[in-house]
Amino acid sequence: MAAMQTFSDPRAAWLERLGDATLVLGHRMSEWLSRAPTLEEDIAMANLSLDLIGQTRAFYTRACEIDSGERDETTLGYRRAEPDYRNPLIVEQPNGNFADTMARHLIFSAYVVPLYERLAGSNDAETAGIGARSAREMAYHLRHAGEWMIRLGDGTAESHEKAQTALDDLWPYAPELFEADDLDRDVTASGFGVDPSSLRDEFDAAVDDVLSRATLKKPAERRGQRGGKSGRHSEHLGHILATMQFLQRAYPEARW
């Protein structure tokens, strides 16, 4: 399938990218359903997943309104090919064990909370509203993932080791979150969006607070993995899309 042309309006393209990140992570979290370690956590995971899918719908819908084209949230979510998705690589990484998922969620939440808080000051009232509401949701995600990392890190020798390994494995995906490209700079300059490179201090403060209480070591910053934001993905995204898009591909226009 040929790559779909992205939005010509940079604001729409940028919102679409935010939506791609929450769609893929929301799908990943939904994979835990019926597999979480406890019933309570199973329901919690469902809530986290649904928050992310809800944010995705808001971002996609607003992007389509701004673009005023023929696409809608369903087109964006289910009918694009792999390179069309612009999510950072971290969200498509496999769930692994529970510590892997919580480490991934801690990193993503600590990045996205200050992002959404600033988005609440967007010059587009609709986008500002989405930012304000989503910031509240993600503040809870940050707490939930943080409290788990504290208990895993400061728990048994085995849970500590798994939490540290999870953090070490996922840390190389953190730098991509904070690298601004032309699109980021464009929407920041116009007062619509947020420059991700301005979020690093708040991210570090939130993560450092958790890690010190969790007795976990912050991994050394290596150059890291990147590419998702420009459509170059790890092997995992294709598998996610195959699962996610199956129904829309097999039964186009299906409604339920």
Partner: peptide
């Protein structure tokens, strides 16, 4: 603390 969070979620 985790009980409070689980209560919120459940």
């Amino acid at each position: 603390k985790m009980a409070l969070q689980a209560a919120r979620d459940v």
